[in-house]
């Protein structure tokens, strides 16, 4: 599989990746040799039925899990050779992860949640606050900065999670079914944010099993039984959210 994009050097380079769970009789081969490169600035959707290994792949790409075999180069660095401490650094600086279940820290304000990765990066409080507010503004939730997760709707929580993922300006934004728990309106909000992020040059990889979500990406990869079944470039992304695609920064409150 060669790089299809023309956006420069690959930010992500995966070679013959396999992942095996369990031993003996109960062995499960979640990934059976995935090879794949993603260029800087690309917008990739990974689709596949449940059990196709897409979540496993995502966790490995996010450095949350380690592969059984194969190589994973992130920004040119072989992740398998990194120490625990360096992996934490990679997760902090290079990757922004958006979970299906939002995964905000409970009883902690939206602002504090967004500030968290910066706190781990050692950014000073004043600057941290400014950058976190800017990220919240980007997802249109600046006016909800002091709300705790349980005071926010699902869509709003996910937008906070997106703000948290992009606040460190990572090379790679990974989203594991980010719209899986959301209604169509919130889904559209999130996808609009992703469109804008990608327009601003961020590399995005998301997992979905909703075709209309997959249709908005520039490139669609389908997994089946832990292997890449198809990899297609989509020149004209469909979907209703296109007007916001090329505007730089959305107005806050525009979609609340």
């Amino acid at each position: 599989m060669t790089a299809l994009g023309t956006h420069g050097r690959p930010v992500l380079d995966v070679r013959a990746l396999t992942k095996v769970y369990g031993e003996g009789e109960a062995v499960v081969r979640a990934l059976r040799g995935i090879t794949l490169t993603v260029d800087t600035g690309d917008y990739v959707a990974i689709m596949g039925s449940s059990g196709s290994g897409k979540s496993t792949l995502m966790n490995i790409l996010g450095c949350l899990d380690s592969p059984s075999d194969g190589h994973y180069l992130l920004d040119g660095v072989d992740v398998s050779r990194l120490s625990d401490r360096q992996l934490a650094l990679v997760r902090n600086r290079l990757i922004g992860f958006v979970f299906q279940a939002f995964n905000l820290i409970p009883r902690t304000t939206a602002l504090a949640n967004v500030e968290l990765p910066l706190a781990y990066a050692g950014v000073r409080p004043a600057q941290r606050r400014r950058r976190a507010m800017a990220a919240l503004e980007l997802v249109g939730l600046a006016d909800r900065a002091d709300h705790q997760p349980n005071q926010l709707s699902g869509g709003q929580q996910q937008r906070v999670a997106v703000a948290r993922a992009l606040v460190t300006e990572p090379a790679l934004v990974l989203a594991d079914e980010p719209t899986g728990n959301l209604d169509s309106r919130s889904t559209d909000d999130i996808l609009t944010v992703f469109d804008q992020l990608n327009a601003a040059g961020r590399t995005i990889i998301l997992i979905t099993h909703e075709p209309e979500v997959g249709a908005r990406a520039r490139r669609l990869i389908r997994l089946f039984d832990g292997q890449v079944r198809s990899d297609t470039r989509q020149d004209t992304p469909a979907g209703p959210g296109l007007p916001g695609r090329h505007s730089a920064v959305p107005r806050s409150g525009g979609w609340a």
């Binding site: 625990d84 934490a88 650094l89 902090n92 820290i105």
Partner: peptide, 16 residues
Amino acid sequence: TREIGIRKALGARRRT
């Protein structure tokens, strides 16, 4: 435990 997982995913070091 979940919160610890989230913090680690956001780049919290073991020592942190």
